[in-house]
Design a protein around this nucleic acid. Sequence first.
RNA 1: GUGGGUGUGGCGAAGUGGUUAACGCACCGGGUUGUGGUUCCGGCAUUCGUGGGUUCAAGCCCCAUCACCCACCCCA
Length: 423
Amino acid sequence: MAIQRPKGTQDLLPGTVEQWQYLEDTIRNVCREFGYEEIRTPMFEATELFQRGVGQTTDIVKKEMYTFLDKGDRSMTLRPEMTASVCRAYVEDKLYGQPQPVKLYYIGPMFRYERPQSGRYRQFHQFGVEVLGADQPLVDAEVISLVWNLYKRLGLVGLEVHVNSVGCPTCRAEHRKRLQEFLDERQSELCSDCQERFERNPLRILDCKNPSCQTLTAGAPTTKDTLCEECSTHFEGVLALLGAAGVVYRVNPRLVRGLDYYTKTAFEVMVEEIGAQSAICGGGRYDGLVEEIGGSPAPGIGFAMGIERVLAALQVQNKLPEQKPKLFAMLIALGEKAQNKAFSLLCELRDQGIPVGIDLLGRSLKAQLKAADRQNARFALILGEAELEKNVLLIRDLTIGEQTEVSLDKSLQEINKKYQRGV
RNA sequence: GUGGGUGUGGCGAAGUGGUUAACGCACCGGGUUGUGGUUCCGGCAUUCGUGGGUUCAAGCCCCAUCACCCACCCCA
């Protein structure tokens, strides 16, 4: 059997790649306007970085990482996300020495060993933003408004922006304790997944899709009830700024993020139409992460956006631009002598930056014209033995079907003129 | 890791035990010697994901296996 691509990966073919480029271009433009600069880090890192950054107890670290030993017996891992890498670079490359805050963005592949489904791949791509070295609510608001702005520019509609504050480690511990107390006597009524979550990550129970769990937790203490003074003030500040920015959001006190490093602000953007994996973007503040991976303490906030999911949303909402690659002209040569001359003309045309093609299969005139038509070429430039003898070139306008004869010496100039006029 | 669904040419898709595997799109060629997009004609699966089994006979039945899709879980 033929070799197949690994499960959960995809080949992006011409036609699709243009859609990715469109999205990437839009992303880069928005980032530039917001004053963010691109960072690129290795696709694999020391396994320990993710264990410490993302958290030992998370599913990502426990069962989804592509981990291997290199030839020097070092444990390496294909990055499952990029926040940890950016923080590592912040420390290692001494970005804290630059004017603060440092505003970065990235676009690239991530790897997680999961069962693929709609909107979920083993190699998937994220666009993300990270701001290091600033803890003001204004930063949180700017980051969220960047997301908002991007979606607006892409033309996406019907998005839900959920915002919450998960608090600092102190209020989070408090919340966890009170939640466990609340659920203690009803533990046996929870679904089996939630019973497991009870010890490991009780906050996630609030997020369970199971209706019976939802009714059970109806009156449970939420993050809101347990935020300390500082976190609460910060959160209020963020919400006020979001309002000022015109971001339409919903405070969702049950929103909990899965990665361990989040503190204070957490947010998520959802689109219903793309299937079960509806989170198109997720992020939040992580004020303890830089210290956790060995740097001196620095606040941070960021998000990651699933490129495949955004594209899926653009697809269902019909917001992807039509693009048909258009060739300006197709050079048609008949016979070997003509081909030599035609090829040199082709090269000259290309030197001038004019998109011109030539038949590479040695086909008949008829077949070549057909091919020119199929490629959406505007003109066919015909050069056969007869033309060669007369030292002329036939320029055929394929849209109206008229053709003129031009002297070969002037042909380059003539075509260039048409091209300039057309563009 | 668990559950459900699907697997016929490049794509879409008929065919549910009987001999040469519809059709549409795409692709390739041709309609007298050098002119496309329309039209007409022709070509394009020794074979139905793979391996085994049942049967006189299997794309159609059974078993296994692989792949893909969807959902749980998790997350972007």
